[in-house]
Computed example of a mutant assay.
Amino acid sequence: MKNFLWPLALATMLTGCATAVSPINGGFYTNVKAPMLVTDNPDKPTKIGRASVRTILGVYAVGDASIEAAAKNAGITRIHHVDYQSENILGVVADFTVIVYGN
């Protein structure tokens, strides 16, 4: 019985370790897009910038998912609105992406 419990305990501890911000999470897979911010910029957005961060098993996270980085990546100086996308695969790998729309 003990030989069966160790792998089960290990799998339980590792599942869900890698998380990303999301209003809803699936048990095996999550891919959610949602709004984050709206400004009073009346101009129709012509540029889209992205910035991401990734974590593996929740042990470390790499990247810069700031609004500033996303805007800079696309040369946006006037932000229209900001969305985000959150993806989580089996709690092993999670990505969080900020998407900035503007001019």
Score class of each variant (00 low, 15 high):
residue 65 A to D: 15
residue 82 V to D: 08
residue 51 A to R: 05
residue 59 V to Y: 15
residue 42 P to G: 05
residue 40 D to F: 02
residue 57 L to A: 02
residue 65 A to V: 00
residue 47 K to A: 10
residue 41 N to P: 03
residue 47 K to H: 09
residue 69 A to M: 12
residue 68 E to G: 04
residue 67 I to M: 05
residue 47 K to Y: 04
residue 58 G to M: 08
residue 70 A to L: 08
residue 71 A to F: 11
residue 53 V to N: 09
residue 43 D to Q: 15
residue 77 T to E: 12
residue 61 A to R: 11
residue 38 V to F: 11
residue 46 T to E: 07
residue 53 V to R: 14
residue 41 N to G: 03
residue 83 D to N: 12
residue 38 V to R: 10
residue 76 I to Q: 05
residue 44 K to D: 03
residue 83 D to K: 07
residue 80 H to N: 13
residue 78 R to C: 02
residue 51 A to C: 10
residue 71 A to W: 04
residue 44 K to R: 06
residue 70 A to I: 10
residue 62 V to A: 05
residue 69 A to K: 15
residue 72 K to H: 08
residue 58 G to W: 06
residue 58 G to E: 08
residue 79 I to Q: 14
residue 56 I to V: 15
residue 38 V to K: 14
residue 39 T to M: 01
residue 53 V to I: 11
residue 81 H to N: 12
residue 51 A to Q: 05
residue 74 A to T: 01
residue 81 H to G: 00
residue 63 G to D: 08
residue 39 T to Y: 00
residue 69 A to T: 14
residue 68 E to Q: 14
residue 47 K to E: 08
residue 68 E to Y: 10
residue 71 A to R: 10
residue 60 Y to S: 13
residue 53 V to H: 06
residue 75 G to N: 13
residue 45 P to H: 07
residue 78 R to E: 15
residue 76 I to L: 05
residue 38 V to G: 07
residue 67 I to W: 09
residue 66 S to K: 08
residue 78 R to N: 15
residue 70 A to H: 14
residue 59 V to L: 15
residue 51 A to P: 07
residue 79 I to G: 09
residue 60 Y to E: 08
residue 52 S to A: 06
residue 50 R to C: 04
residue 81 H to K: 13
residue 74 A to H: 07
residue 79 I to T: 08
residue 65 A to Y: 12
residue 74 A to R: 03
residue 83 D to R: 07
residue 73 N to M: 06
residue 79 I to P: 13
residue 82 V to S: 09
residue 42 P to K: 08
residue 64 D to T: 05
residue 64 D to H: 07
residue 67 I to D: 02
residue 77 T to C: 10
residue 56 I to C: 04
residue 43 D to K: 14
residue 67 I to S: 04
residue 72 K to D: 15
residue 80 H to Y: 14
residue 80 H to V: 11
residue 66 S to W: 01
residue 81 H to S: 08
residue 43 D to G: 03
residue 68 E to I: 06
residue 70 A to R: 11
residue 60 Y to I: 02
residue 39 T to A: 00
residue 64 D to V: 10
residue 81 H to V: 00
residue 77 T to L: 13
residue 80 H to W: 13
residue 76 I to W: 05
residue 68 E to P: 08
residue 55 T to V: 03
residue 51 A to Y: 12
residue 83 D to P: 11
residue 75 G to A: 04
residue 62 V to N: 13
residue 40 D to A: 11
residue 42 P to I: 02
residue 76 I to G: 01
residue 40 D to H: 13
residue 52 S to N: 03
residue 52 S to T: 05
residue 40 D to K: 12
residue 38 V to I: 09
residue 75 G to W: 13
